[in-house]
C-alpha cells in the first residue's frame, strides 16, 4: 500500500513537472520544472530498489547537467527576440501529434499482457552492480569512457574563442 501511495505521489510530481516544462514560457522556469522531474525520477529509482542509480541521477543529472543547463541559460539570456511561445499552428500540430502518440502508447501498454514478474524485490546492492559493470558490461563501460574523453576534448575545443572575435587579453 505504501508503495502505491509513494508511486502515485512521485508520479504526480514527475508528470506535473514535465507538464510544467511544456507550458512554461520562461526558460529558467523550465529548468526548475526539469529539476522537479529529475528529482522525482531519482526517487522513483529508489522506489524500484535501484538505490545507486537514484543517487547517480541526483549527482550527475540534478547536480551536474542541470547546473550546466542553467549556466547556459544565463550565458545566452540576453538574446534578442527569445520567443519561447510557439506559433499557434505549430503548437496545435505538436499537441495533436503528442496526444495521439500518448493515447496509442497507453492503449498498447495497458493491453499488453506482460509476463509475470520473475524476481520480486531483488536487492540490487552497489557491490553487485559494480561487479556486473566491470565484468559482464566491461566493453560498453570502456566505450563510454572513451566517448567521455572525446566529449571533454570536443567541449574544450568548442569553448575556446575563435580567431576572429578573440577578445584582447586583459592583464
Amino acid at each position: 500500500m505504501y508503495e502505491a501511495i509513494a508511486f502515485y505521489l512521485l508520479a504526480a510530481v514527475v508528470a506535473g513537472s514535465a507538464f510544467g516544462c511544456v507550458i512554461a514560457t520562461n526558460i529558467v522556469r523550465m529548468a526548475l520544472c526539469l529539476l522537479g522531474t529529475l528529482g522525482g525520477v531519482a526517487l522513483l529509482y529508489f522506489l524500484m530498489a535501484a538505490n545507486f542509480l537514484g543517487v547517480v541521477q541526483l549527482i550527475v543529472y540534478a547536480g551536474g547537467t542541470l547546473i550546466v543547463i542553467v549556466f547556459g541559460v544565463m550565458l545566452t539570456s540576453r538574446a534578442a527576440g527569445v520567443r519561447l511561445r510557439p506559433k499557434r499552428s505549430e503548437a496545435l500540430a505538436g499537441t495533436l501529434i503528442c496526444i495521439g502518440l500518448l493515447a496509442g502508447l497507453v492503449t498498447l501498454l495497458v493491453r499488453t499482457a506482460w509476463p509475470a514478474a520473475q524476481s520480486e524485490a531483488q536487492a540490487y546492492d552497489v557491490a553487485w552492480l559494480g561487479n556486473e559493470l566491470l565484468s559482464t558490461y566491461l566493453v560498453p563501460f570502456e566505450m563510454v569512457s572513451v566517448l567521455l574523453l572525446a566529449v571533454m576534448i570536443g567541449a574544450a575545443f568548442l569553448a575556446q574563442p575563435s580567431g576572429k572575435d578573440k577578445e584582447p587579453e586583459e592583464r
Binding site: 508528470a15 511544456v22 522531474t37 503528442c98 502508447l105
Partner: peptide
C-alpha cells in the same frame, strides 16, 4: 510514455 510525449 507521458514523460516521453512531454519531451517530444
Amino acid at each position: 510514455a507521458f514523460l516521453f510525449c512531454c519531451g517530444l
